[in-house]
Design a protein around this nucleic acid. Structure first.
Lengths: 244, 244
DNA sequence: CGCTCCTTTGATCAGAATCAAACAACGTGG
DNA sequence: CCACGTTGTTTGATTCTGATCAAAGGAGCG
């Protein structure tokens, strides 16, 4: 019974965004259907395939369904800064499509499935459903909040703290979207990706990660992470989960 | 004649936001009046008087009319990180009011005049005027863009570059809002404020500023800044003005 | 099996933090 | 109107975090 109900549900609206929105506002069947209507086009990309390019007009709005993606920019000196990481259920490119030009690039970190949303259709749906409009505004607000946290992380935390803080955030967000399996989280980021997110050098990132392992706070294999002592890690990185 | 026309104009909608919105979309008289209706309550605050407090539900949305304000947070170690600076025409607290809790504090850097907007009234107006709604969404988008730029600045620029980049941004934004008088810009920030924005120590900030003065890129007095060679400063800081 | 990408280690260097203290400007009250 | 306290700026000396350089291991893949 449960299963059937769930299947019907997910056949209407893909799981990640469904879970996300339902935590923000509870939607009527009509509203859910409207969202589902936006998400009919899927696209599968492999690591590194930019789907938004800095300086170009974005061609769509993207919803991450499976896998991870990052927003990033490259300085004239060729250094890369990753601004944030988008997990399943996160929307990428909405605000760029408002301005008409992307001010960052976006790419998947691993094999990733995206829903491709037509901007015009998106604004139609928002206009027609005020409750959805509000829900998506809140999603945008949490994006903003995440960026502000990134600012603190880069500006005022030490290398060790940044890593502890960042891993805490990833862990916490993964818990929220139920992406922890058997106590492990898939972590499709290289250490280079992590350093480019945290404004550190690769070598230093590597050493700090090792130190966290040595201290028994985390376990880290190839592409999986396990946070052993989430409390201690959060305290070390001065991390507190965002409201919402 | 000009003066009278201008006075009528400003009696409808205060100058800073008027200029801002009109660059984004051209509004009808009705829409302008709707905005003006939101901005009837003014408030004057002195430096340091928090009008948004981290962790508390924000009581209103604020529009900076005169003076500068900053969004900031304090780490558990007591370090302050300023996330961004709000100049006249900038909106503060909109997204916090959506979430219902502020994830930063905000305070004026100097004697500052704010318009206090009732959140409920604000969303009513947005609901009633789709064009305004879109215009404010774009404002929000440029906020986001500014934060992303701050991320790059903190993560991948050297101290010298950060300062050059930041001063370039302030200068450019001041030009946009016509706040340059006789080639000088009011800069109501202490060097401590600047260091807390750029994630630097006070001492280092001071030395880098002096170096920019020595190199003839800027002139800096007590509370005024003059950018002598905007091109060189921008190049040094890898700054490029945001679209919009 | 050989290539490529990623991680790890070692050694050195430099940018920026910290510590300490003097100096300058400002506002206030006597 | 000046003395004084406060806040902000400047300077000097030292320390340390984290960058850079160089190169060796590992893992996955065609």
């Amino acid at each position: 019974m449960e299963d059937i109900a769930e299947m019907i549900m997910t056949s209407r609206m893909p799981a990640p965004i469904q879970a996300r929105l339902s935590r923000i506002a509870d939607l009527t069947a009509t509203e859910e259907a409207a969202v589902a209507g936006l998400l009919r086009n899927r696209m599968s990309l492999k690591r590194g395939a930019d789907f938004i390019k800095d300086g170009k007009p974005p061609s769509a709005i993207y919803l991450v369904e499976k896998g991870w993606a990052v927003r990033y920019a490259i300085t004239t000196e060729g250094k890369r800064q990753i601004m944030n990481v988008a997990l399943p259920g996160d929307l990428v490119g909405y605000h760029c499509s408002l301005i008409g030009v992307a001010h960052y690039s976006a790419m998947p970190l691993s094999e990733t499935v995206l829903s491709v949303i037509e901007p015009a259709q998106f604004s139609e749906v928002l206009a027609a459903h005020p409750k959805l409009s509000r829900a998506f505004s809140r999603l945008a607000a949490s994006d903003l909040a995440g960026l502000r946290v990134q600012t603190i992380r880069l500006g005022r935390l030490t290398a060790e703290q940044r890593i502890a803080h960042f891993l805490s955030e990833l862990w916490h967000r993964s818990v929220r979207i139920e992406a922890i399996r058997d106590g492990w989280m898939m972590l499709p980021m290289t250490q280079t990706d992590i350093s480019d997110t945290l404004g550190l050098s690769l070598v230093h990132t590597n050493r700090q990660l090792q130190s966290l392992k040595r201290d028994g706070l985390i376990l880290l294999k190839r592409d999986r992470l396990r946070v052993v002592d989430a409390g201690a890690l959060a305290r070390l990185g001065d991390y507190s989960p965002l409201a919402l």
